[in-house]
Write a protein that binds this DNA or RNA. Structure first.
Length: 596
RNA sequence: CGGGAUGUAGCGCAGCUUGGUAGCGCACUUCGUUCGGGACGAAGGGGCCGCAGGUUCGAAUCCUGUCAUCCCGACCA
């Protein structure tokens, strides 16, 4: 391809609405343009990158026997109603774009394809003899994100590879899950990415195991915790650890203390000379349940620990046996609008009386009480007295009428000791989630009545797995991991072009001739080559080549008459002068071995 | 959804305080000189100043509303 024909539009100034380096560089390099918030056009250079990533993914999926398909993006509401997800995905904070057709029938734009694929599998797969089957597709997904940001990192329309597997039993699901894990690692490594596989929350989707693949980068939205020995790695949402030891409360004496204006753990402790681990803090939250009920929740935590909301959400769904859409702290305004007498915020105890809820207009009038094990393990502690500006010192669970149900609710943090080896300390890193694999179990096959006949002749729902890769996100993550002050430095395997031949001076006939010759020889060797034949000064072409990040550059300049060129490696910026024939041979060797 | 910021040419910005009909740099077009790290000179083209009301003889500028975009938060009482 000739640069003069490439519709290459690079920007010298950094667009004001891009924050992180990868987003800025993709805009500046002429790879993407924003159409509206969270929705981008992939320009020709970008499409080549995406196509290369797609090819790698296809090769690895095909290699483990997965079948490529293409499913519709418009989904009938009825399908999602059968799985029970329509309400949660379209109402309130739901992320599914939805619309009505001319007959008034409701449709949604697919954010994911479990419903469609499971229904199809139920129709087509009748016998255990047909199993296992893995299907995959690469297409655009639509999600009305609460807050799209950072270009392709979190967009509302994005390209995803999603795969779904169907099995006669759980052991077989595990086999495919492990094969996927290996395929994913090959995919990311072939794309030139440093990734970490971490334990992940499988959330309300349920299921046994789930693992995310994170591209490590400071701009990542996720926090991951790893042990130095490399054995443990988890998303903070899921991570477990041992909390630091609590400082025992010296006095066993039980008293109620006036604590005016000591509403936070911090001020309470500094004023009273306490350690936060001696205090139980109580959070009042409101859970919104899928059937529309509003459940007040009382969460007790050790004062030095923090709540992991994802764990809480999962625990609530399990306790209530119903899907909980979200959970958020109760505000003073909400209490007023419920017509409830004000609560002694800042002095709440785990035994806050249900009677406070008796006049609530739309809430369930009984607290659901949960506590983290680090809180229930305390034998003698401090907590609020349920009266403004008063705390109880030296109290215990039996005085409070017993322990609440104990569930892991605390946020693991860097510095905590690991579960597998308490000499290992958790370290934190930021990551961009580019892949996620799940063992779904039978949730969807049961809900959608997708059955097969097993070897005993009876009907049974499938065991299922699902496996995603964010193709467009992966492309931007690669830039985030591979760039410098001059621009992008694509890994060879996913670069839009592998080599760019730059003619320093287009007016110089020997230069032009040699460049044309190299260009056609590289192409003949099957190498994706750009020829910068623009009538620009050399500096402009060098800057653009650096910005768009082509891994290899051949500069045909002053020494063209001697048939000498410069070979420049983008990643190291190493420059070598050598005969044109040798440069050609080296590139064919280098690129041929690594990439074809 | 809450909080903050910003909307002026393709991109980056000034002008707004103190109203008088729009400017700079880059990019684009033409000509000339240049030609190895974002050249120089000359001449051009391109704007419903986000949108809608209002105030005023007159609004990019003041007022009201609205829309859009970006950032922070979704929080330990």
């Amino acid at each position: 391809m000739r640069v003069s024909r490439l519709m290459l539009v690079t920007l010298r100034d950094v667009p004001a609405d891009a924050e992180i380096a990868s987003h800025q560089l993709l805009l500046r390099g002429g790879y993407i343009r924003r159409v509206t918030s969270g929705i981008y056009a992939y320009l020709p250079l970008m499409w080549r990158v995406l196509s290369k990533i797609k090819s790698i993914v296809q090769e690895e999926m095909n290699a483990i026997g997965a079948l490529e398909t293409l499913l519709p993006q418009l989904h009938p509401a009825e399908l999602w109603q059968r799985s029970g997800r329509w309400q949660g995905y379209t109402a309130g904070e739901g992320i599914m774009f939805n619309l009505e057709d001319r007959q008034g029938r409701e449709l949604g734009l697919g954010p994911t394809h479990e419903e469609v694929i499971t229904t199809l599998a139920g129709d087509l797969l009748r016998s255990y003899r047909q199993l296992p089957v893995t299907l995959y597709q690469i297409q655009s997904k639509f999600r009305d994100e609460i807050r799209p940001r950072f270009g392709l990192m979190r967009s509302r329309e994005f390209i995803m590879k999603d795969a779904y597997s169907f099995h006669a039993n759980e052991a077989d699901l595990t086999t495919t899950y492990k094969a996927m894990d290996k395929a994913y690692k090959r995919i990311f490594s072939r794309c030139g990415l440093e990734t970490v596989a971490v334990d992940a929350d499988s959330g309300a989707i349920g299921g046994a195991a789930s693992q995310e693949f994170m591209v490590t980068a400071d701009a990542g939205e996720d926090l991951i915790l790893t042990s130095a020995d490399g054995i443990y790695a988890a998303n903070q949402e899921k991570a477990v650890s041992h909390p630091a030891k609590a400082t025992p409360l010296p006095s066993k004496e039980s008293i109620v203390l006036d604590t005016p204006n000591q509403k936070t753990i911090e001020t309470l402790c500094s004023t009273q000379g306490l350690h936060p681990s001696q205090v139980i803090k109580v959070l009042v939250m409101l859970a919104r349940i899928e059937d529309g009920e509003l459940q007040p929740v009382l969460v007790s935590l050790r004062g030095d620990q923090e709540l992991n909301e994802v764990k809480l959400l999962n625990a609530l769904s399990k306790e209530l046996g119903k899907m909980v859409l979200d959970v958020a702290p109760i505000t003073a305004d909400q209490i007023v609008s419920q017509g409830i007498e004000a609560w002694p915020f800042g002095a709440l105890g785990p035994d806050l009386d249900d009677a406070l809820l008796s006049s609530a207009k739309s809430w369930i009038t009984r607290f659901l009480r949960l506590a983290d094990p680090s809180a229930t393990a305390l034998e003698n502690f401090v907590c609020g007295a349920n009266r403004s500006d008063q705390h109880r010192i030296g109290t215990n669970w039996s005085k409070l009428g017993g322990k609440p149900k104990s569930v892991d609710l605390r946020k693991a943090q860097a510095g905590d000791c690991c579960i597998h080896d308490s000499s290992q300390i958790l370290e934190e890193q930021r990551g961009i989630e580019v892949g996620h694999i799940f063992q779904l179990g039978r949730k969807y096959s049961q809900a959608l009545e997708a059955h097969f006949t097993n070897d005993k002749g009876t009907q049974e729902p499938f065991w299922m797995g699902c496996y995603g890769i964010g193709i467009s996100r992966l492309a931007q993550a690669a830039v985030e991991q591979h760039h410098d002050e001059a621009g992008i430095s694509w890994p060879l395997a996913i670069a839009p072009f592998e080599v760019i031949v730059v003619v320093a001076n287009l007016q110089d006939e020997p230069q032009q001739k040699l460049a044309e010759q190299l260009y056609s020889e590289l192409q003949a060797a099957g190498i994706d080559t750009l020829l910068d034949d623009r009538n620009e000064r050399a500096g402009v072409k060098f800057k653009d080549a650096d910005l768009i990040g082509i891994p290899w550059r051949i500069v045909v300049g002053r020494d063209a008459t001697k048939a000498e060129v410069e070979l420049v490696k983008r990643s190291s910026r190493e420059v070598r002068k050598l005969p044109a024939t040798q440069a050609l041979a080296e590139l064919i060797e280098e690129i041929g071995v690594n990439n074809h």
